[in-house]
Nucleic acid binder design. Structure first.
Lengths: 342, 342
DNA sequence: TTGTATGCGTTATCAA
DNA sequence: TTGATAACGCATACAA
């Protein structure tokens, strides 16, 4: 039972545990860290004392003395964007046996302390860092801390470890899926940022190769549902005969669907719609949005693996890999006019 | 510029800064903590040295020596559930000037270490804890750490500080909104758990007071989209003439809408639908789900305020408050048959 | 206004 | 297999 002894002002320390178990503090430390060469009798005594005292080791003292925190930090842009949840899931799976602790911070979390996530993690002395947000220009240039960039391509020095989705390929695959359904007048709703640009380039290349006209809207707009809705509305004015819309992410696909509905166009009856990221949103039974899975869980696995390697060998050559995305077909895409006629 | 000196194996310490600035370590410490009684000349010298060395104070050493971490922990169930994002936003607003650092952990994050979030935070020696997940039975009973429960009602001892939404009232307001639109055959899709039960009781009380029949489905089911879809399908079999469905949360409302669509029923043309929580999902232009705002941002403000009070006065009497929710009307609810006739 | 000394709760090194 | 003991990097009296 975790019962706190009555008279104690402050929390029990390793010293209290040692005294209660009738051993030295060193022995307690050994038991805590699972050292093999400890007699069963002593180990049991220590464990019992720990339990009785409700003792919890101080991570602060441990990391100060041990020169490492056994923790890794994950810097994300914002908690709203759910792709990092899958990334974490993958990381956890890989980190399972290692004893590493994971902490997450977004850009805003401690902005009141004038701390960007990286500075915060540096103060925390994390053993490694996962950069799961777009780094500012130059911030990675001489970061003397083991790190790997996850899911970003912009502002990443060539010497950085990097695990990301192949967004260009994803753009090609999405467009290919629509072409395969018989669509020809396929428009793309893009937005600002490096990731959107890559997805867009995949779309453009595939359309050109197929001999169809490239129609892109939303350059420099935010990658939000609202902006995508506006872009799509403008698109429908200029190109009323599009039969498919590929949006740069799932939320933007929702925006496109809202604009289509406003015009009285059915999905997928009149127009097929695709998103990107395969968020939980897309998987919703109600929405059933066809999307591109960027395999963020697998990205998490690879990211953790890469970071572990980097921590154990800081001078290893940079490791870079792109994960192949996958189209997840649901209910918002259907055969286009060409396929429908015969 | 943050440039690391070439020869140094490890990170610069307060000692290095002191030496470079030509002062003692204590002086550096004073500057760091913004102590007023430091001459401008020295202060500038220290700041400059910090910048040149790229020095970041070790939180571990600071908290070990200072007997507090200046950090507060937020324990959540899972990152997927976005209501905590607004809670954090509110907390940050209140914590702005205090210098407190916020860290978030979900139940799974470090489960591979056999650490539940509370144990983790105890090891971290956070100065305070926000319990934003349903506590296990008894875990709060003798938690000797300043904490406040946010948004939960189950398993909360009467002596705990608590800030939560008034879910019963919210259930009443939702039902009242539908009644006000002229609906009478209103069903409720509930699920397992204390929060859902409170919302359900608000629905029941209001229906009874209005003299209408209570129709509830989904008891003991998970509070997920999928389960809500199944429950709603069963509901429509048993009660084909319902004109409104109130779901215990937004995701479940989606499930209900999927089931309605499957029956060929339009929303809100044939059936009105309401959710609860007013998640970003509900606010989406495409969905436009009428929902109940539980005011999680304000909850964050109150929670932080309460926790600060608790930290500074551990023996203060328990503080409990319920926030009044608000119905947010969007496009999934419309006048019912009674109102439509005249 | 600034410097000195002590201790925080661990890990790690060395002896025993 | 176990026990002393010296760091670890900083805050905090206390002294100057």
């Amino acid at each position: 039972m975790t019962s706190v002894q009555p008279g104690s002002r402050s929390r029990p320390t390793i010293y209290d545990v040692a005294q209660r178990a009738g051993v030295s503090k060193s022995l307690v430390s050994l038991v805590l860290r699972g050292h093999p060469n400890v007699s069963d009798r002593r180990r049991r005594a220590v464990l019992e004392a720990i339990d009785e005292l409700g003792y919890r080791p101080s991570t602060a003292a441990a990391s100060l003395a041990g020169h490492r925190t056994h923790s890794i930090g994950v810097a994300i842009e914002e908690f709203e964007n759910l792709w990092f949840v899958e990334l974490l899931r993958g990381m956890r799976q890989e980190l399972h046996a290692t004893g590493y602790h994971v902490t997450v911070a977004d850009r805003d979390l401690n902005s009141h302390l004038a701390l960007d996530p990286i500075d915060g993690f540096r103060s925390l002395r994390v053993d490694g860092l996962v950069m799961a947000m777009e780094p500012g220009a130059g911030v990675l240039d001489d970061l003397d801390l083991p790190y790997v960039v996850a899911g970003q391509r912009e502002n990443v020095p060539g010497t950085s470890d990097l695990v990301a989705g192949d967004d260009t390929l994803g753009g090609e695959m999405a467009t290919g899926h629509l072409l395969g359904l018989g669509h020809e007048r396929i428009a793309h709703v893009t937005g600002a940022g490096g990731t959107a640009a890559l997805r867009c380039s995949g779309y453009e290349a595939t359309m050109r190769a197929a001999g169809h006209r490239v129609v892109v809207v939303g350059h420099d707009e935010p990658t939000t549902e609202l902006a995508a809705g506006r872009s799509t509305a403008a698109l429908l004015d200029a190109e009323p005969d599009v039969t498919a819309v590929f949006a740069a992410n799932d939320l933007m696909a929702l925006g496109a669907m809202a604009a289509l509905r406003e015009r009285g166009l059915g999905v997928p009856g009149d127009v097929s719609v695709m998103g990107y990221d395969d968020t939980p949103l897309a998987g919703s039974a109600y929405l059933g949005l066809t999307s591109v899975d960027d395999r963020s869980d697998e990205m998490g696995v690879r990211t953790a693996r890469t970071l572990l390697r980097r921590i154990s060998d800081p001078s290893a050559p940079p490791h870079r890999e792109l994960l192949e995305p996958a189209v997840v077909v649901r209910t918002t895409t259907a055969p286009g006019p060409r396929a429908a006629r015969p």
